[in-house]
């Protein structure tokens, strides 16, 4: 085995000596606190605010639907008027 091959073997052998250290107790404690931390973050937005936002969105959608249906019926009225007008003209 030449010098280069020996060096490569030495480097490859390191993989057999690398260990995985134990998880520190404080890190494990922090991990176990995650559910509480996540719930606190969620609770930062009060339920009242969430309902208010939901109600506002619902109201906005309702208003949009109302006005779009009104505009559709107005259009259909226009159409029927024009139909009547042209049929009257045809009769003349």
């Amino acid at each position: 085995m030449n010098k280069e091959e020996q060096w490569i073997e030495d480097i490859m052998d390191v993989s057999e000596r690398v260990t995985s250290p134990s998880i520190p107790a404080h890190v494990l404690a922090r991990i176990r606190e995650i559910p509480r931390g996540v719930r606190t973050t969620i609770d930062l937005v009060p339920k009242r605010t969430i309902w208010l936002v939901a109600a506002s969105i619902a109201a906005l959608i309702a208003v949009n639907i109302y006005f779009s249906s009104t505009s559709t019926s107005a259009n259909s009225n226009d159409t029927s008027f024009s139909e009547q007008y042209f049929s009257h003209l045809n009769q003349l």
Partner: peptide, 23 residues
């Protein structure tokens, strides 16, 4: 937790980063 911590250490080779990644 122990296995994942091991993976984090082997990936990042740095205790602080491994702890952050584990979290």
């Amino acid at each position: 937790a122990q296995k994942i911590y091991g993976s984090c250490i082997q990936l990042l080779r740095n205790t602080e980063d491994a702890e952050d990644l584990l979290q």
